[in-house]
Amino acid sequence: MQRGTRGEAHEWARKGDQAFKEMEKINAELFIVTYGSLVMQLLDDSGDNVEDVNQQLDTIGYRIGVRLVDEFLAKSQVQCRSFQETANAVAKVGFKMFLGVPASVHNWTEDSKCYSLVLDENPLTSFTELPEKYSGLWFSNVLPGVIRGALEMVLWKTEVKFVKDQLRGDDATEIRVTLLQHLKDEFKQDDD
């Protein structure tokens, strides 16, 4: 399903470029190699239990997302009032800002509660190939965690997971985001 006009898409892309420009840059290769070593270390520590590593990467990502969202909102001045807005905010601004490449939003469900983020290019996997024995690994599983953590901080409780990864030989790299619940603002007089 197609959402938004061409002008809107352009506006989001502009916001993404703007935010990207203001970010401090680090050496991409250093970043990629560091991430690769992290994944390898997790695999070593868990005795090559890929399910375990998928889970840990997701948790690490969640913790990053919870922090990252404030920097994202402060620097991009983006609003996340509706769930549809968050899709563009994450894809066009968030990905561009922190990874340098935007993602695209596809496959909205009829009830507007579920969409896919498709990455044409995934910097995390630039130098990576997946050996046979790790075929169950979602190498970039930190990304869904980051998205889940960030969205939860703006009160959208979601389930985020990889459904396709080019590293595994799929035709695209696709992350599925499903809205579970719009959380309530809990701010109140602190009683305890």
Partner: peptide, 18 residues
């Protein structure tokens, strides 16, 4: 305050958790 001070000194501080 939010974007240049709070984000830099609090959100990025490993000792702080949300």
């Amino acid at each position: 305050i939010y974007s240049s001070i709070f984000v830099e000194k609090v959100c990025k501080d490993p000792a702080y958790q949300h």
